[in-house]
Design a protein around this nucleic acid. Structure first.
Lengths: 339, 339
DNA sequence: CGAGAGACGTTATACGTAACACTTCGGGGC
DNA sequence: GCCCCGAAGTGTTACGTATAACGTCTCTCG
């Protein structure tokens, strides 16, 4: 009980147990089979417990040259979706003795190198979703192992990518609406420059164009209920024949669309079908419940982490997009026969 | 360009600039006024830029004995609320050169010391919300500076606490409902053992008891839409006079209550008033929009971080609860006159 | 002209850990 | 009886940084 003011080091434990610091390191690092006797090992463990010893991570990181810490860059913490991604990634990470640090990337164009200035912990690698190109090149330049989530496989400078099969989700939505008989569709698009949203637009247009006589109009809105409300209202009061269905880039936009429709006196799904994408809790909170595409966020995070581990170990990450699933609920129905 | 395979160190920069490693440290650490000439300093900066030098955080942390990293423990990432807390805390932290690492505490009783095993980064301090008592004593035992969010000031073992004035929010809700004429209230309580929820129950009961002839019934539900739906439905189909208002412990529970009411054929607010607490995006997505208590999550995180900084610097953290505000929307109205 | 004071650096060291290389000792094989 | 080997440790070093302590050299002032 000499100097209880400062945290005990492995040397303090060694002194207490009457062994060398090296022995403590061996025992506590579980590398002592055949190098230290069981009785001595127990004595060391006892001393460590007694003193409340916990290794200094900074020293260990310095010595080992790696941190077993990984950075997860997410565009926003505000969504259940990325919470799920984190949960999945953190679970896999924990299984492999890794920790995950979150970095919510600032809106718009933040300082490109910020993730690293800001993430004070040293990092072994990065998992990033929807990252600006300049930040991306910065990381690549740093030689930091990198996995991109939901990004253009072509445009990611050779970084590994893990993607949800969003295109297939959009295909399912399109097929569902076409089967119900819809021909005029409003695409409520997220006004965010990101590959994942480009895919939605491209795929929706392609699928509808495959059927003669269809027409798709596009409205852009920031991802917020207010923004979606305004954009939807504007699009639906524009001249020309009114669409019979609104396809939204995500559930939050769909919530805004619901409000716009209420305001315009249109009923879901009788006057207008609505679809979302994400399957957040919000989807079932809406009335009627929202037909949407379920994304398995946890699996997504899990696969992202596994891919990063593969990169770290020099292996090739598994390919293959993550399947998604259309969940049909009460917000879609056949269009009214034209009056 | 000798060894480009490994990351350059300050010594490499020194060699390139023709100075000592110490000089590099001084220049890059901005401590060189009057110790190094401007021309030399520029030469060092140039060399550092050239080599793409970035300091090794692990080494710095070891040397300085502090990490400028703080752990934020949150019960769940799934809510906008804690996203806001993080945002506020991270902003203040960044202003002071600190980073924030998130640790979503596992549901229920996780391994108490897990936050520290799991957070691989070494920590200067911890901000924790709704933490289990055993984990709390573990941190206290570690002498880690600690700030508790929304916790019983009495039960936090002397740790600093920062609280929202939830009690006042509940008072405002109670006053609002009483003023409208409600006398029979159902309290839809979160089935989570946490001080912050105890406060809601205690305060609501006290306020209503102050007015003769009032009656409060309690239903408990896990914080999920499904759980709230079931609990509300059960409570409202129980025998006895039906309440005229449902006071929910948070907005998510309110969303479940809405669904239960729809299922029972009761209209909001005509047949039943509903109130929430949090003011999430969900609140305005509901129809009618939810009367709720707005909590300033970002300010909360900000105050938490400031308090931790104060503790770290040996100062006394500012006291005082954070004010909250009742937001009256369409979900509350006078009760129907008894038929 | 001598000395003190800047200006401009350098040398040396410590932070706490893990790992390599080495020592000591008792016993078993031949 | 000798050698070798395994068990059980210990001594030492390096990871990369920040800083305290210590030179020089030049300039200025009395």
């Amino acid at each position: 009980m000499a100097r209880s003011s400062t945290r005990p080091t492995s040397r303090d434990v060694a002194r207490a147990a009457g062994v060398s610091q090296a022995a403590v390191s061996l025992v506590l690092g579980d590398k002592w089979r055949g190098r230290v006797s069981e009785t001595t090992a127990e004595r060391v463990r006892e001393a460590a417990r007694e003193l409340g010893y916990r290794p200094n991570l900074a020293a260990r990181n310095l010595r080992l040259g790696r941190t077993r810490t990984v950075l997860l860059v997410v565009p926003a913490l505000t969504t259940e979706f990325f919470a799920g991604v984190y949960t999945g990634a953190a679970r896999v990470a924990a299984e492999h003795g890794f920790g995950v640090v979150l970095y919510p990337s600032p809106e718009g164009v933040g300082p490109a190198r910020d993730p690293f200035a800001s993430a004070q912990a040293a990092l072994d690698g990065v998992i990033a979703s929807s990252m600006a190109a300049d930040a991306l090149t910065a990381i690549r330049g740093d030689q930091l192992p990198l996995v991109m989530l939901d990004s253009d496989p072509e445009g990611s400078l050779g970084a590994a990518t893990v993607n949800l099969d969003i295109a297939d989700g959009v295909r399912q939505v399109a097929a569902h609406l076409l089967a119900l008989g819809h021909r005029r569709v409003l695409h409520l698009a997220a006004d965010v420059p990101s590959w994942t949203f480009e895919v939605r637009a491209r795929e929706l247009a392609a699928r509808l164009a495959a059927v003669p006589g269809t027409e798709v109009r596009t409205a852009r809105a920031p991802i917020s209920i207010e923004g979606a409300l305004a954009a939807t209202e504007a699009a639906l009061t524009a001249p020309g024949p009114r669409p019979t269905a609104v396809v939204c880039d995500d559930d939050k936009l769909a919530a805004g669309a619901y409000k716009a429709l209420r305001r315009l006196g249109l009923r879901v799904p009788d006057d207008m079908s609505v679809t979302g994408l994400d399957d957040l809790a919000l989807a079932t909170a809406l009335d009627p419940e929202l037909t949407t595409v379920r994304l398995d966020a946890e699996l997504f995070g899990e696969r992202g982490m596994r891919a990063l581990l593969a990169v770290l170990e020099g292996r090739e990450p598994d390919g293959g997009d993550i399947p998604v699933e259309l969940v049909v609920r009460g917000s879609t129905a056949p269009p009214r026969p034209p009056a």
